[in-house]
Design a protein around this nucleic acid. Structure first.
Lengths: 338, 338
DNA sequence: CCACACTCTGACACCGGTGTCATAATGTGG
DNA sequence: CCACATTATGACACCGGTGTCAGAGTGTGG
């Protein structure tokens, strides 16, 4: 099968390449008759323009890269979904590139990525959105990027986040209002800025409600289900046992719920459990988890949309936004048994 | 900032473009001295080759597209993970493209995708791997593709699947061996060939163990948690209630478990529950779900790897493989209470 | 009828690399 | 020392589009 290029179309239609190109791009100044003729030849020859050639000429790939290193599958899926929505709206496509934050290989890895695929821009999700090193590198290389859920303050680059500290504050307050005073906390992965923010929110809520902060009630997790299971063990073994557990994400909360159930504890009667993120699992288990819903898709959608705007027009003002997180109450939290 | 191209490097190093290109691609017949000199200039100018230009010259984009329309996030993540492994091994990248199987827009959608991004090949996951229409289109367009978990027999295209029928047979047999004779079944989405295959396995197991097939025990699901919840309601309302439920995937099984727990039924004492896929949720809930583990990553990895081989060398023989699924026994299945 | 504006079209350079081929430089055996 | 093979290098066309600009054709107002 012969390849159909713009040249074959031009020859076949008896016009110049440039005219074909004009029709292709819906440019003005083509007579209706010529346009018709060329369009007909498109059909006849089943012509598909070559995006690579176009990319070379325009110095664009129309591809956005999405960087992540995140243990939560549902988070990634939501990120992808928001990113794709914005991409498709502007005829861009999405290339995914999971990689590891740790290790000197990061910059090398990204450099290699840029050598194998020209990306018009990159969306950085946590923990990359907090990597000063990566951000410096991208700036040096003049690569457009947008930060999602980043704690860094950088007025020069696009950033969309949600208020983790406030969310953690609200869910802790929710537990306090139910009557809990002994509330355990499971931290997330130390590389993620959300970890510190959620911890801060927890502490602020205690403070503002005059409950002494007890470091013994804090377990070190890393957002994975597995780490949640370890933390759960430590917490449920405490004596006296806290009446509530607030885990920094839903997977870890689910692990607490599982262990509690295995130990014949009733949730929420014997122990209340709260999570964060509103991952699918939060509503797929019984009792459903009280949690904080963040607009992950929307954050990413906005970030990518702004990124694309910036790519198309360097003059676009740098967009920065903070979206609201929302408390979702389900069955896993209730008044403590007295 | 001046753009650094192969021309600037050539001029600066005092050699020709072609020699620079040779160094870039590690081609032989470059004297060590020249190679050194050019490499030094690479560093000095901080040169990054332009993948688009390279792609145009070689008629390659080094990008594989991954097509899916699947309600299960964990399935998608596993697919992506397997595909990425193969891609990165061969210096390819992965572009994701979720879209809907239904509607005339499918072909148009893919056509548009190919107009915006030149893909060297595509991985089709269910239900696309079973779409005769799409396959015909890709063949017509001379686009390389590989099918994952496809039920279609087509000796001309790469296919990697696992044995769903056998897996369903084994898990049903497992329930029968425990002593269950009244086993409900929840079907998957009708567009997925796995749905029929799993149903067939279920029926064959009943038949081979002389248990009459009872259509009333079959509920229509679509692989989503929500559909599982509806089916669960229908099944648990049956009188007499079956002693076991086999759902076509873990999300639906989790929905059955949730409803059963809400209704104060003990699992597995009052009712056994089995799923399929070994999704994360199967081990994140209590009791853990007995299920079938399919090597999703491995299937996709092999499919993409073969796809890349085929792209690099058209002579590569068409690879077709069927991998084994494995029964995973957890706490959700046990002897029926007599 | 002429001057001028506007529409339509194509020639040609260019984007930044790679492939082909000719040629210069070097090595090797007789 | 010569014939010949081998290595090293560059000139140039080419991949398949887009941008610039010149020029032909058409319309309009004075």
């Amino acid at each position: 099968m012969k390849k159909v290029t713009i040249n074959s179309v031009a020859t076949y239609a008896g016009v110049s390449k440039k005219t074909v190109s004009r029709v292709l791009n819906n440019e003005p100044n083509v007579s209706p008759a010529t346009r018709e003729k060329v369009l007909k030849v498109f059909k006849e020859l089943d012509y598909t323009p070559n995006p690579i050639a176009r990319g070379l000429a325009r110095n664009r790939s129309f591809i956005i890269g999405c960087l992540y290193d995140n243990p939560s599958k549902s988070y990634i899926t939501r990120v992808q979904s928001g990113a794709l929505e914005a991409c498709h709206k502007h005829n861009y496509n999405l290339l995914i590139h999971p990689c590891e934050l740790r290790g000197d290989a990061l910059i090398e890895n990204i450099e290699h990525l840029l050598t194998t695929s020209r990306l018009d821009g990159m969306v950085l999700t946590p923990p990359f959105s907090d990597s000063e090193e990566l951000i410096a590198f991208l700036k040096k290389k003049n690569i457009h990027f947008a930060r999602v859920a980043s704690a860094i303050d950088d007025a020069e680059s696009i950033s969309v986040r949600s208020n983790d500290e406030q969310g953690a504050y609200e869910i802790t307050e929710h537990l306090i209002n139910l009557g809990h005073t002994s509330i355990a906390f499971i931290k997330g992965h130390p590389d993620h800025s959300a970890t510190e923010q959620r911890f801060n929110g927890y502490q602020r809520a205690l403070r503002e409600h005059n409950i002494a902060f007890n470091p013994q009630l804090v377990a070190e997790g890393n957002f994975s289900y597995h780490s949640g299971a370890d933390s759960a063990k430590a917490i449920l073994d405490l004596n006296p046992r806290p009446s509530a557990v607030f885990a920094s994400n839903d997977y870890m909360a689910a692990a607490v719920l599982k262990l509690a159930t295995q130990r014949q504890l009733k949730v929420p009667e014997d122990i209340s459990i709260a999570g964060f993120d509103n991952a699918p699992i939060a509503r797929h288990i019984w009792p459903g988890l009280t949690t904080i819903a963040q607009p992950v898709e929307e954050m990413t959608r906005q970030a990518v949309e702004q990124l694309i705007l910036q790519i198309s027009d360097e003059q676009t003002p740098v967009y920065q936004a903070t979206l609201e997180a929302k408390l979702i109450t389900r069955e896993s939290t209730a008044k403590p048994r007295c």
